[in-house]
Design a binder for these strands. Structure first.
Lengths: 346, 346
DNA sequence: TGTATGACTCGAAACGTTTCGTGCAAGCGC
DNA sequence: GCGCTTGCACGAAACGTTTCGAGTCATACA
């Protein structure tokens, strides 16, 4: 490969002059610029990224760490981040943690080796111990996304998870449901903890006594949610509604319903968190608490690039995005054996 | 950040010795290894990726270029590649082209700047002109994936697209369909050209006269397939079956069907290429020609790493993966107004 | 006992850039 | 006409590694 030296020779100027032309970092006369650019074009020179990064101390690399790129929510987030970064002259490294905190730490190491200029981190744990490990492993501007982590100084962008939980429960209660099952994620992850806490609070607010057996943690994985759904449906007194705390777990629950030969919403109402790209191809169409993925991702990467450019320390600011309840066909008034709050709803 | 020099000082050895310990590239005595490792641990030293890459001439970076990571097929491919690369000590750069060849070339440039050791390229065009541009822009081991490109020396991994087209048409014809519409991609892309050619050939083989109006190119985009579906359904003599040549276009067609208030498969059969993760949540469940995404991706990255390690020039070998017809509820025997080939099929 | 061998360690050069101090010439004000 | 500034170009050092030739020491062998 051609180097900057080859360009310099070809153009008959010094190496530093070529550098000045490429980066427009110093005044260069018109005709020298022309000569250098011609030399670059004929030689086919492309700067060496690693050499640039080494010398300038600026890799112009952004790390994106997320649980699983095959989850449509995360792939959309990654997509948005990539687009914004590209415009700003950064490249992105996208890596999957598989919800494994050990793997998360390993990826963090790799990011540090690459000397990334900043990171968007969708962490798999939220507890303070994990927060401390994170702080020890992170030495660049970082924005936490999607889930919160206790006791870190970084900016945090999340859904208003409490509101999301309340929105769904309120909706189901209004439809007359009182035996509401919840397929939850994993204790110790803020998206689980906060959404679940909000659900419980909402249930109590409506005067519904909590049945612990109706709450099953499914680790945010589709298959476990499927099994949880089966367990719930096999009960002597099955719930009249299931609320799944993530998009994949909603799919798991729906599969359980189908496998059991039940009809939604006649036999059971189903609500989830996180919308789908083409809701109409599912049957029934899913009532969900939608997460504004694109807006959140744009905000997060904007905040990160800001922090990098301004060289300001993180403000430790938490930004919540409002969820939106989208009512579709999967939720309906509870069937008549149950007491109805609103007779018109049937 | 600590450098290798700091480690050397702390351990009381030479820089080159530290390097030898880290890379196990030369014999080092036990106690020196211990001292160096202790120094690394206490200082918290992590090698500088860019410096390593610059000096060694080996970035240990693999570029993955694909149309759109939010397409589940591609996100799964990216996932598999990432996992395999990680095990082999490579990191991956994943980039989206948005089916734009100009953007593809720009990304290729970025990859070259990063001096990637190899690339998996899912190109957006297949013609010879594009092939020439590619060859001018690629100077590292590369494996073409998913779609073929004319006249390049690289290895190519694709679905057996001809077989995929034939499989679907044969299936529909066996069900008695004779007015079969095809929602195609874009001329000049091998996944379009070969699949469509196979369809036409299969139709002729079955003695069906080709109706050009029933073939609509939708550029592989979901929304255009939706519009194509609407157009087809609005005809005075609508087709009895639609075959969509990609997963997203199948969804578009299905949406058109739903929007028109038609019932599948009663009013119309629907078949696509590329399977879905949870086929049961769609209604009806889709009959598809499934693409073995994981196996193909594993093979592709394996071939690439092989080529890199062996320093062999590309063999220019084309590997086809067999598609599999998965019959589900979206395809059925044509309704009785049409002549049936097999009366039992109804 | 001398020498060849092998195991280990070291120092310095090199990878391809950016950056900074220096030099030179021309333009300006006085 | 003189000194100052300004615009432009240059050379060399530095970024953090790897690599390679050379040096040291102990061991084994003749």
């Amino acid at each position: 490969m051609a180097t900057i030296k080859d360009v310099a020779i070809k153009a008959g100027v010094a190496i530093s002059t070529v550098s000045a032309v490429i980066n427009r970092s110093a005044p260069v006369s018109e005709d020298v610029i022309a000569r250098v650019e011609a030399a670059i074009a004929t030689i086919g020179y492309l700067p060496h990224g690693a050499a640039k990064a080494l010398r300038s101390g600026n890799s112009r690399l952004i790390g994106v760490i997320l649980p699983d790129i095959t989850n449509p929510f995360f792939s959309m987030v990654a997509r948005v981040i990539e687009t914004v970064c590209m415009k700003a002259g950064y490249m992105t490294f996208v890596y999957n943690t598989d919800e494994d905190p050990e793997h998360e730490m390993r990826i963090l190491q790799m990011m540090r080796m690459q000397r990334v200029a900043g990171m968007i981190l969708i962490s798999t744990r939220s507890d303070a111990a994990h927060g401390r490990r994170l702080m020890a492993a992170i030495n660049v501007p970082t924005v936490l996304f999607g889930s919160n982590v206790e006791g870190t100084p970084y900016d945090v962008i999340t859904l208003d998870d409490r509101k999301a939980g309340a929105l769904a429960i309120d909706h189901l209660v209004e439809l007359g449901h009182r035996r509401i099952a919840i397929i939850a994620g994993r204790p110790g992850v803020s998206t689980h903890d906060e959404r679940l806490a909000a659900c419980i609070e909402a249930l109590q607010r409506h005067g519904i006594v909590l049945d612990e057996d109706l709450i099953i943690a499914a680790d945010f994985v589709q298959q476990l949610a499927f099994e949880a759904g089966q367990k719930l449906l096999a009960r002597a007194d099955p719930p009249t509604a299931i609320f799944a705390l993530s998009n994949l777990m909603l799919i798991g629950a729906m599969r359980a319903l189908l496998a059991a030969g039940k009809t939604c919403p006649r036999d059971l109402s189903l609500v989830g968190i996180g919308d789908f790209d083409w809701p109409e191809i599912m049957s029934p169409q899913m009532t969900v608490v939608a997460t504004p993925a694109v807006a959140m991702a744009e905000f997060a990467i904007g905040a990160l690039l800001d922090e990098i450019d301004s060289k300001r320390p993180p403000a430790g600011k938490r930004t919540l995005f409002a969820p939106e309840l989208i009512i579709r066909g999967s939720s309906a008034a509870v069937s008549i054996e149950e007491p109805l709050r609103d007779p018109l709803a049937i």
